[in-house]
Amino acid sequence: MLRLKCPWCGTRDELEYSYGGESHVTRPGLDASDVEWSDYLFNKENPKGIHYEQWLHKYGCGRWFNVARDTVTHEIYAVYEMGQAKPDIAMTDRD
């Protein structure tokens, strides 16, 4: 069971959240080629290690936020708001 700390509601069980996949994916311009568009639409980082991902506090405040989580240990390194830049994990306090 993951325990995620919603930036607005505090720590809750995984069951209250729904998962939104990879974060920081930027939509290419309208002049993008088919290859660029396909890369944006389908290809994933899918790292074995730190994954920057989106979560929705579905059965809570209903707001989205970002999480930096290790996909092997499931350790959560950072929780930060949408629109914020990727945190530098080495510099981040792991509380």
């Binding site: 069971m1 993951l2 995984e14 069951l15 729904s18 998962y19 996949g21 990879e22 899918n46 074995k48 994954h51 991902e53 989580r69 996909t71 092997v72 240990t73 499931h74």
Partner: peptide, 13 residues
Amino acid sequence: DVYNSYAQRGGIP
């Protein structure tokens, strides 16, 4: 399980 993982354990929910 709904989230990306390489853990080979599986969650309780």
